[in-house]
């Protein structure tokens, strides 16, 4: 395929895209659905768009609105939501001493319900040194610099359990990432990536998640690609999927070499994509197919 001349390759890519979208029945998000957890906690799944971040979206929709009734229901009950297994494991890790300093997360940060409230809503965030960090970076920084413990793998069980637990402390709070000041160059980099076509299929994030929201890609509904629900329990994986893991899957699906989880590129993209969901409620731990 890489030996094809550019013109031919372009035509082929267009054919593939056409094939992917053929028979695209309009399947709009279900705007009548209301996300309420355990009959108590309402989570915002629709937020107003704006002219700066999402000029091409009429409104911001959580991916939850695009799912089937059964999948939606699984997220509405904390017992039936299998992601809560990871949250419980994360809660245990929070109080577990690890590393040469003999400390647990709790020893410094106290009760996560108070100290971690709102943290997930502003991730990723520019740290004191001016570097954009995802929540995973903050966690590993604590582990290696303060606890004297080993860094966790980005999408390993411990890390996804911890980020699930931390995310839950912001459940229901609106996504509120900072995109100006020191974050501005990262946000610009992320936006650039969002509109860049990748891979042999020459697809950008926007081709699917902005131009074709609500349409079908084979048998799957295309959502707006919001990440307000992450970390998410994917039925397919029967486990927790991180934002960067999902990015990797998307880019691989364009038949491209993907960036690494935790890379500069994915952190920038995470900031930009998070900003496209400003105002949507953090779902803490969502359920997606």
């Amino acid at each position: 395929m890489q030996h094809l001349k550019p013109a031919r390759s372009l035509a082929l890519a267009s054919a593939c895209v056409a094939a992917l979208w053929s028979g695209a029945a309009l399947a709009d998000p279900d705007l009548t659905a209301d996300l309420v957890i355990d009959g108590e906690l309402h989570i915002v799944t629709r937020a107003p768009s704006d002219d700066i971040i999402t000029p091409n979206l009429p409104e911001r929709y959580s991916g939850w609105l695009f799912r089937s009734e059964d999948t939606r229901a699984m997220e509405m009950d904390d017992f039936e939501n299998p992601a809560m297994i990871a949250v419980e494991a994360g809660a245990e890790l929070w109080t577990t001493v690890d590393g040469t300093a003999g400390q647990s997360c709790q020893d410094c940060h106290g009760d996560a319900e108070e100290s971690m409230r709102g943290v997930r809503a502003m991730m990723p965030h520019v740290n004191e040194d001016g570097v954009l960090w995802s929540m995973e970076n903050y966690v590993n920084n604590c582990r290696t610099e303060r606890m004297g413990a080993e860094a966790w793998r980005w999408s390993g069980d411990e890390m996804t359990s911890m980020t699930s637990f931390l995310s839950l402390q912001s459940r229901g709070m609106p996504v509120a990432v900072q995109i100006d000041g020191p974050a501005a160059p990262y946000w610009e980099q992320g936006r650039e990536m969002y509109y860049t076509r990748y891979g042999q299929l020459e697809l950008s994030c926007a081709n699917c998640h902005e131009d074709s929201t609500g349409q079908m890609i084979r048998a799957d509904h295309l959502s707006q690609g919001q990440i307000s629900g992450f970390p998410t329990y994917r039925l397919k994986n029967a486990g927790i999927v991180s934002v960067h893991n999902r990015f990797r899957g998307c880019i691989r699906d364009t038949r491209a070499e993907t960036f690494a989880e935790g890379s500069d590129e994915f952190r920038a993209l995470e900031l930009y994509v998070a900003s496209r969901g400003i105002g949507l409620g953090v779902e803490g731990v969502s359920v997606r197919p």
């Binding site: 017992f79 809560m84 297994i85 990871a86 419980e88 494991a89 069980d157 411990e158 359990s161």
Partner: peptide, 10 residues
């Protein structure tokens, strides 16, 4: 996370 943790709701 190999710990098996049963969850029960009554």
């Amino acid at each position: 996370m190999t710990d098996v943790r049963p969850r029960i709701r009554l």
